[in-house]
Amino acid sequence: MPATNDSGRLFTIVLVTSWYSSNIGVLLLNKYLLSNYGFKYPIFLTMCHMTACSLLSYIAIAWMKMVPMQTIRSRVQFMKISALSFVFCASVVSGNISLRYLPVSFNQAIGATTPFFTAVFAYLITLRREAWLTYITLIPVVTGVIIASGGEPSFHLFGFIMCIGATAARALKSVLQGILLSSEGEKLNSMNLLLYMAPIAVLLLLPATLFMEENVIGITIALSRDDIKIVWYLLFNSALAYFVNLTNFLVTKHTSALTLQVLGNAKGAVAVVVSILIFRNPVSVTGMLGYTLTVIGVILYSEAKKRSK
C-alpha cells in the first residue's frame, strides 16, 4: 500500500512540475520571441498556439482517448462556445502584446489581480454578491499592483493597458464559462472545450493577423531562410501552449481545487524569479513589495472564498 501512495505522490509531483515548466516556459519563450528575438507578431503567434491546440486536442481525444469525446448538442451551445473563444482570443492576444512592452515579472504582478476582475464581473453579470470579507481581501490585491506600477523601472503605459485587458478578459471568460456552460447537458471538460474553442479561435485570428500584421507569413518564411531556428521556436512554443492546457487539466483532475489555488499562486512567484534571472530586467524594492502585497491579497481572497462557502 505505501508503494502505491509513493507512486501516486511521485506522479502528482511530476504533473505539477510539468505544469509549472510548461506555463513558465511558454511565458518566457513568448517574451523572448516578441521582445528579445524581435518577432513582433503577437496575433500570428497566438494563431500558431491555437492551431497546435486544435491538432493536438484532436489527437489526444479522438486517437489517444485521453478523455471521452463530448459532442456539441445544439446551435445555441456552439454560439456560446464561439463567444467564449472570442473572449479567450482577446485575453491571449492582449497578454502577448503586453509581453512586447513589459517584463515578465511585472506582467505576472498584473496577472495576479485576476480574482479582482472575476469578483467584479461575477457581480455585474450575475448580481451575485460575495461576503464583505472577500471584497476587503481584494484591497491589497489592487493596492499591490498600484505600488508595483509606481516602482516598475520598465513601466510602459500601452503594455500596462494591454496586460490589464488580458487579465480582465481571462476573468470574464471564467465567469462566462460558469454561466454559459452550467447546465448538465452543456458542460464540457476543459480538454473538450479547448478542442472546440481552438479551431474557432484560429478562424477569428487568421483575418486579424492578415489585416493587422501585414505580410506576416511572407516575413516569417523569409526569416526562416535566414535563421531556421525561428521555425523550431514557433513549433516548440505552440506545442508548449497546448501542453499548458493539458497539464492544467491533469493537475485539476488529480489534486483538489484548494491545492490548485495554492499552486497557482506560487506559480506566478516562481515565474517572476525565473524571468528576472533569465532576462535580468531591473526590479525595484517598491515593485517587489507591491507584487508581494498582491500575492498576499490573493491568498487571503482564496481563504475568504473558502470560508464563505
Rank of each mutant, 00 (worst) to 15 (best):
T4H: 13
S7G: 12
L10C: 07
F11W: 03
V16S: 05
V16R: 11
T17C: 11
T17A: 15
S18A: 15
Y20F: 08
L27W: 01
N30V: 13
Y32E: 09
L34E: 00
Y37N: 09
G38T: 05
F39M: 05
K40T: 07
Y41M: 14
F44Y: 10
M47T: 08
C53Y: 11
S54L: 06
M66S: 04
V67A: 14
R73S: 10
Q77R: 11
S85L: 12
F86N: 08
C89I: 08
S91P: 09
V92T: 12
G95Q: 01
N96M: 08
N96E: 05
S98T: 02
R100C: 06
L102F: 07
P103N: 11
S105R: 01
T114N: 04
P115M: 04
P115A: 01
V120G: 00
V120M: 06
F121M: 02
Y123N: 03
Y123C: 09
T126C: 10
A131M: 11
P140T: 10
V142D: 07
V142H: 07
V145N: 02
S154G: 12
F160Y: 14
I161R: 00
A169W: 04
G178K: 12
E186A: 10
L188Y: 13
N189Y: 08
L193M: 13
L193W: 12
M197W: 04
M197E: 15
P199E: 13
I200K: 06
L206A: 10
L206T: 14
F211M: 15
M212G: 14
N215D: 11
L223N: 14
L223F: 15
L223V: 12
R225E: 15
I228V: 15
S238I: 04
Y242D: 03
N245W: 13
T247P: 04
T247R: 09
N248C: 11
L260V: 06
Q261V: 02
A266T: 03
A269Q: 02
V272N: 02
S275E: 00
I276K: 00
I278Q: 01
I278T: 08
V283H: 04
T286D: 05
G287F: 00
G290V: 06
V295I: 15
G297Q: 05
L300R: 01
L300Q: 09
K305T: 07
R307W: 04
K309I: 04
